[in-house]
Amino acid sequence: MSFGEAALRRKPAATAPCPCGGGSYGACCGPVLDGRPADTAEQLMRSRYTAFALRDRAHLARTWHPATRPDDLDSDAAQEWTGLTVVRAAGGVDDADGTVEFRARWRSGADSGELHEVSRFTRIRGRWLYVGGVVDPLS
């Protein structure tokens, strides 16, 4: 089975809670993962968190700026993303650039932790793209 097929099997129902914590999947990240452009940098970041949680490599690839996207987008199969907190966000419908500071919790077997990152985004031809981020080394 391919990575994409596995992601399709894990797609939540529209009424299920969104993995990013922003409401129901169908009203939150579902439309963005299905290809609708994100309105804000925060909305794109939330959809990318959800894509990591669902292992949707295709969404991660298409929303990552080609200049900074790694060749390998495979994730640790044992790692589970368990929660997201957005600390602050900037970058709306009229902006060209944005930032989102967030904390994403994870679990892998008996280990668990939190990723703290300030991500940078840019908007090209009406679509937000992830450029890169600075990870707190203590997270």
Rank of each mutant, 00 (worst) to 15 (best):
S2W: 14
S2H: 15
S2K: 13
A6D: 14
R10T: 03
K11L: 13
A16V: 09
A16S: 15
C18I: 04
C18W: 02
C18T: 07
G21D: 09
S24F: 08
G26C: 00
A27Y: 01
C28I: 03
C28K: 01
V32R: 11
G35P: 13
T40R: 05
L44A: 05
L44M: 11
R46H: 06
S47G: 02
R48C: 09
L54P: 06
L54A: 10
R57T: 14
A58R: 14
L60D: 02
W64P: 01
H65N: 09
P70A: 08
D71W: 04
D72R: 03
L73R: 02
S75H: 05
A77Y: 03
A78Y: 14
E80P: 01
E80M: 10
T82C: 09
L84R: 05
T85P: 03
R88Y: 05
R88I: 06
A89H: 02
G91E: 10
E101D: 12
A104L: 04
R105W: 05
W106N: 04
W106L: 06
R107N: 00
G109D: 12
A110Y: 01
G113I: 07
L115M: 12
R123Q: 10
R123P: 02
G126M: 07
R127V: 10
L129N: 00
L129H: 05
V135D: 12
P137L: 12
L138N: 14
